[in-house]
C-alpha cells in the first residue's frame, strides 16, 4: 500500500509571530520556518506503517514556492521514499490545497492519505475533510490511534467528550492529532543523503485546477493582552472578593 502524506511549511512553533506595521498581514520576513508539527506526526505515522510492513511506499507532497523543498528534504530524511513538489508562487488556501491534493491522489492512487489535523499558522483544520469530500473517500479527523487490517481501517478520534472509534474501508483520509505518536528526529547521515535525493516537481498551472483564494485578508491585529489583577493574601480574601467584588460565586 502506498501512503501519501501532505506537508506544509509554516513558521517554527517556537517563534513568536509579528504583524506588519500596516496591519495588512503577519510578518514572516526572516522568521524561522519548519514543517508543521501535525504534519510531522502524519509523516511519522506513515513511516511507522512502512516499518510494520503495512505500507510499502511513503510519498510526501507539499505545495508552495521553492522553499518548501526544504521540508520535503526533511521528509526524505525522516523516511519518505519519494517527495513531490507542487510548485506555486502564490499561496493556496485550504480548498485550493485540497483540489491540488485530489489531483495528486488521482495520479498516485494511495491507499491512505495522512495529513495534520491543522496547520499552526492559519489554524483552519479544513484541508483533510475537503480532500476526503473531493475524492469521495471516508475521513477520520483528529486521530489518536490507527490500526489497519487488510483494507479495513480503524481510527480512534479525539472528540470533545472523550474518544470515538470509527471503522472504514481504505482508501481513506486521516488527519492526525497530537497524541498519535511522537515524531523521531532525522539522523545526520539521513539528512546528508536526502540532500542528494531527487524531488519530483509538478507545476500547479499545468493541473487545470481553480485555486483562486476564497477569502481576502482585510487586516490583522494582536489581541489585547490581559492585565494582571491583584494578589490576595488568603483564601478568605479570595472568597470575599469572588463573592462581593467579581460576583461570580
Amino acid at each position: 500500500m502506498k501512503v501519501l502524506v501532505a506537508i506544509k511549511r509554516v513558521i517554527d512553533h517556537n517563534v513568536r509571530v509579528r504583524i506588519r506595521e500596516d496591519h495588512s498581514d503577519v510578518d514572516l520576513t526572516h522568521a524561522k520556518m519548519a514543517m508543521n508539527p501535525f504534519c510531522e506526526i502524519a509523516l511519522e505515522e506513515a513511516v511507522r506503517l512502512k516499518e510494520q510492513g503495512i505500507a510499502d511506499e511513503v510519498v510526501a507532497v507539499s505545495i508552495g514556492d521553492k522553499s518548501v523543498q526544504e521540508q520535503l528534504r526533511t521528509a526524505l530524511a525522516l523516511g519518505a521514499d519519494r517527495a513531490l513538489h507542487v510548485s506555486s508562487d502564490t499561496a493556496v488556501d485550504s480548498l485550493g490545497a485540497a483540489r491540488v491534493l485530489a489531483e495528486v491522489v488521482r495520479r498516485e492512487t494511495p491507499g491512505l492519505v495522512l495529513l495534520g489535523k491543522q496547520s499552526i499558522d492559519s489554524d483552519n483544520s479544513q484541508t483533510g475533510p475537503m480532500l476526503a469530500a473531493l475524492t469521495q473517500m471516508p475521513q477520520a479527523t483528529f486521530a489518536s490511534s490507527i490500526s489497519i487490517e487488510g483494507d479495513r481501517l480503524e481510527v480512534t478520534r479525539e472528540i470533545d467528550g472523550g474518544l470515538e472509534t470509527l471503522a472504514m474501508s481504505l482508501p481513506a483520509v486521516v488527519t492526525t492529532d497530537l497524541r498519535l505518536n511522537e515524531p523521531r528526529y532525522a539522523k545526520l547521515p539521513a539528512i546528508m543523503k536526502a540532500k542528494k535525493r531527487p524531488i519530483e516537481s509538478l507545476e500547479i498551472d499545468t493541473l487545470g485546477i481553480d485555486v483562486t483564494p476564497r477569502q481576502t485578508l482585510l487586516r490583522v491585529e494582536i489581541p489585547r493582552e490581559r492585565q494582571a489583577g491583584v494578589r490576595v493574601d488568603s483564601v478568605d480574601e479570595l472568597i470575599d472578593r469572588l463573592k462581593n467584588e467579581a460576583k461570580v460565586i
Partner: peptide, 13 residues
C-alpha cells in the same frame, strides 16, 4: 490565527 496570538479579519468571496 497562530493559536490566538493574531486576530485576522477576513472577507469571504
Amino acid at each position: 490565527i497562530y493559536a490566538g496570538s493574531v486576530l485576522a479579519t477576513v472577507r469571504s468571496l
